[in-house]
């Protein structure tokens, strides 16, 4: 008898580990229901943190789970079989990798754009005024790794400016760059305008002129293995419509 119970518990644990993201038993209704998991670029953390609850309020009975990481990490996870419904990437190349691998359903659409900004600790103690300063000897600069969108965008901007930077570290996502600057470990980093805006008082931004700046396109797509394509599509539609207002408030440019 006890053995049975143990066996049942073990089986239940096994099953729980394999669970999908949507409830197969939920009744079909006219409005969207159930839950989806959205893989989103780190730079979307603050904005999506706001949009998620807003969406759930607009569509009661729905649940949006977010997983934030560097876009390249997310793409790697999806390629390794991570279960989810939507990917919002901070660049096209990482999105294209998934499209090429046949892991998307439908074609991606651009829902937001972003610009780069230099981030420095509050008060700008090293008097960084532009990209040219980042090449200065003795200045501790951190960038994103080149696989991460913010990394190749930064490289692009530095190339345009003709500046060679020897970064102290290549971080795995944009929030890690921001953290190193906020902690005062780094003198400067290149992140998105939206990150500086979301970071608060510990850091401040130094603008990069439009001629040297890079516009980052944020594509979004439904994943092929989505268990709730209906809700995933409604969420993407919401981002293109009502969500734009919130995205703008967090510093994103319209698509």
């Amino acid at each position: 008898m006890k053995a049975r119970v143990l066996g049942a518990v073990a089986a239940a644990l096994l099953l729980a580990g394999c669970g999908g993201t949507s409830e197969p038993g939920s009744p079909p209704s006219s409005g969207p229901s159930g839950s989806i998991t959205v893989f989103a670029a780190s730079s979307l953390t603050a904005a999506f943190g706001r949009i998620g609850p807003d969406f759930q309020k607009t569509f009661p009975g729905t649940m949006i789970h977010f997983a934030f990481a560097g876009s390249s990490t997310l793409v790697a996870q999806i390629q390794q079989g991570a279960i989810g419904d939507v990917l919002a990437s901070a660049d096209q190349p990482n999105m294209q990798k998934l499209v090429n691998a046949g892991l998307t359903s439908g074609s991606p659409s651009i829902f937001a754009r972003n610009k780069l900004q230099i981030v420095v600790p509050a008060g700008n103690p090293k008097h960084v005024t532009g990209l040219a300063d980042l090449g200065r000897a003795g200045l501790v600069v951190v960038l994103c790794a080149s696989a991460v969108p913010c990394g190749h965008y930064a490289t692009e901007a530095l190339q345009k400016a003709g500046v060679t930077v020897k970064p102290a570290s290549e971080e795995t996502d944009v929030k890690a760059v921001l953290a190193k600057v906020a902690l005062g470990e780094a003198d400067a980093g290149i992140v998105y305008v939206t990150d500086v805006k979301a970071a608060g008082a510990q850091v401040q931004g130094v603008d990069i002129p439009a001629s040297l700046n890079v516009v980052a396109d944020y594509p979004i797509v439904v994943l092929k293995d989505s268990q709730n394509i209906a809700l995933a599509k409604v969420f993407i539609g919401y981002l293109h419509a009502k969500g734009q207002e919130t995205l703008a408030r967090y510093g994103f440019l319209p698509a």
Binding site: G70, S72, A76, Q79, Q80, A145, P167, S169, E170, E171
Partner: peptide
């Protein structure tokens, strides 16, 4: 290591960090 020393090839990118990053670019 990645928290305290960061990640830079040849300086602080040890094998486990290289494995983590390579998984995204060259599995």
């Amino acid at each position: 290591t990645i928290t305290f020393a960061g990640n830079f090839p040849g300086r602080t990118q040890t094998m486990p960090l290289a494995v983590y990053l390579a998984l995204e670019t060259n599995p």
